[in-house]
Design a binder for these strands. Structure first.
Lengths: 201, 201
DNA sequence: AAAAGATTAGACAGATCTGTCTGATCCGGT
DNA sequence: ACCGGATCAGACAGATCTGTCTAATCTTTT
């Protein structure tokens, strides 16, 4: 509750930091508890007192990653004015992630690949994906497109594909490709009709 | 008794079949050797005589999956005539995969998420991705687009995104969304200038 | 029929992992 | 100063995993 001074982060914070580095770079299953506590400089009892078990630590790690990514995207979007620019700006924010020291793909995809099907880890991934989907839908609605949900689904595909390609192909330029494709989709998507007939033929 | 061919598959085939089911549905790390041999009805020594170690078994499993998917896609593409239909037909083939009994996402993405960075597993994934990329590039070239590689990259993003969404969102209709987006990208992509004209068939 | 090679069941070794427990030590609030 | 909670180091139990090895049984070839 009391805010820590800058001298020494709490055991919880150090554990989350270590989890963030090790789980993300090497995978959830391959990194054992011992490596986490060694890297965090924390006793094993502190870990189990704080989180209870490994799965809860993984969920907390995913949660912290989610808020970090959300903040990063939203901050990047403040640079853009028009709804269209902001829709495409999501891919710019993604590109910044790709060029980070070493990007290893979507943490939620990786963690889900290692977790049983109906675990709390999958639920954390669902949360994150719902947020991304909601963001695209909201921006598409603001931009006045006729089918914001459908457009958001298409853009989400590009967003996922870019993250996957950036990792699997070790190609950070995937976000640029995705942005260009997204621009083409926006150009092709019909706007909501403020009034008269639809443009057929 | 004297029948030696069709009645009983070899130990290798049964192991690959078991690996295909268990590794794909539950993950590579979480499924142990004991589960594999039990499910295959094979002795442990046979597994290690045949494959040497677990990683080789995983690679063989990925290899068999790759050829299976390639066959499926190519067979589906024979239904279509024009290059454009065949480009979009890749997403139809993908949709058939999604509606399979239980689809669990791209096996290569899952396996790579659990494997160390420079393993032979990653290399198997690279092979598969290179094939998909080459297929899109080839079809885009046949269709006469000005920038086949660039278009193939965009379509590959949709392909990856659809596979990822089908798994993460448990939404097999992702291939339909991807197909629609791909059609829009094809409409927007410029055609190559016809250097040598051989117009009609 | 007999030899040679596969295949089987399962014990075993060695390593590793999660989670618990003990007791000592540090540190902030009253 | 003191007390209670947080944290520490590390041993320990119990389970699990990969890979090896033995010895018996089945299959094929000579």
């Amino acid at each position: 509750m009391a805010t820590r001074t800058a001298t020494k982060p709490s055991a919880r914070e150090r554990l989350l930091e270590a989890a963030n580095e090790l789980f993300y770079s090497e995978g959830v299953q391959t990194v054992g508890i011992d490596r986490i506590i060694e890297h965090a400089g924390v006793a094993k009892a502190s870990l189990y007192n704080t989180f209870g078990n490994k799965e809860s630590l993984v969920c907390a790690y995913l949660e912290s990653r989610k808020t970090r990514i959300q903040d990063r995207i939203l901050r990047t979007l403040t640079r853009f004015r028009t709804p269209r620019e902001r829709l495409l700006g999501v891919f710019d924010a993604q590109g910044e992630l790709f060029t980070a020291p070493q990007y290893n793909g979507c943490a939620f995809v990786r963690a889900t690949a290692e977790a049983p099907d109906d675990s709390s880890i999958s639920r954390a991934a669902d949360d994150y994906r719902a947020w991304v989907r909601g963001l695209f839908t909201e921006l598409a609605t603001e931009a006045g497109y006729a089918d914001p949900e459908g457009l958001a689904r298409q853009l989400h595909l590009l967003y996922d594909g870019a993250a996957l390609s950036a990792r699997m192909d070790r190609d950070p330029s995937a976000s640029t490709t995705a942005r260009a494709a997204a621009a083409a989709l926006l150009d092709a998507a019909p706007l909501a009709e403020p009034a008269t007939t639809s443009p057929g033929s």
